[in-house]
């Protein structure tokens, strides 16, 4: 109830505006904020960057998590399986901030990556504080959240299905495409909801390991930080809300919520 009320105020305040002289909020409905959002190309750029990196992170996480989850769910012995599950959950025991700062140290000029490359007599890479660094950090952060739904959906597939598929002459790629993937799809979509929405709403990682702004940074600056234009922040915050609404509706169509 409290949450819904807060959301409603967010929705309404997006249509208010800030008086430029007194810096106080004018409680009159209007489209000023949305006009600025539409007119200034920088906000479109930030929105596209945020959604783009969210999508990139999600795809990478699914590509990494699926083979690992498949191995853990169907091929590994019980001890190996336990080891995999433990190693995936282990990072969750430490604070989110600790993990971000760890990546900052790993990627910086004299960090682990460049140290290793140097020892191997390879050229050093300079990706600290770039969008690549953001992509890597996010992919790492959300991997467990993508892994588990996929793991659960793969484990649920009865072995007899795969045997039936092969008995009827289907080769492994055909079984993967026609049997496993359709049955695992709800799990994949459920996991992707986590990685996509978590990236979409994050504002700490982009400025800590990167040097750019996400939607969340602009919102933060407007609500708590630099610009103190709360109505404008609310208006921009509706963009990820809308993106997620569309995403969730699409996910429901493929039955992702049954896998949760």
């Amino acid at each position: 109830m409290v949450y819904l009320a807060a959301l409603a105020i967010l929705l309404v305040s997006a249509f208010w505006r800030l008086d430029p002289l007194s810096f106080s909020v004018v409680h009159r409905l209007g489209l000023t904020n949305f006009q600025i959002l539409w007119r200034e190309s920088v906000y479109r750029k930030i929105a596209v960057r945020t959604v783009g990196i969210s999508a990139g992170v999600t795809i990478t996480d699914v590509l990494l998590a699926f083979p690992l989850a498949y191995y853990a769910a169907r091929l590994a012995g019980s001890r190996l399986k336990a080891a995999i599950l433990l190693s995936v959950t282990l990072p969750l025991w430490s604070s989110y901030l600790v993990r971000i700062y760890a990546w900052r140290l790993i990627l910086d000029r004299q960090g682990l990556v460049n140290w290793t490359l140097h020892k191997l007599h390879l050229a050093s890479v300079d990706i600290s504080f770039t969008n690549w660094a953001i992509w890597i950090a996010f992919t790492y952060l959300w991997l467990p959240f993508v892994f588990f739904p996929i793991y659960a959906s793969l484990e649920r597939i009865p072995g007899s299905f795969l045997e039936a598929s092969s008995d009827m002459g289907a080769k492994w790629p055909m079984t993967l495409r026609r049997v496993i993937l359709p049955l695992a799809l709800p799990g994949i979509v459920a996991g992707s909801i986590f990685s996509f929405s978590l990236t979409l709403g994050d504002y700490i990682t982009p400025t800590t390991v990167g040097n750019t702004q996400f939607i969340g940074n602009v919102v933060y600056n407007n609500v708590l930080g630099v610009a103190s234009n709360q109505p404008f922040g609310a208006a921009f915050a509706l963009v990820p809300v809308a993106v997620m609404a569309i995403y969730l509706l699409a996910a429901r169509r493929v039955g992702a919520f049954e896998a949760l």
Partner: peptide
């Protein structure tokens, strides 16, 4: 140009 415009313009620099 007043400060609110400065802020908008600066967002263009950092966020662009």
């Amino acid at each position: 140009i007043d400060y609110s415009i400065w802020e908008q313009k600066f967002t263009e620099v950092i966020g662009g």
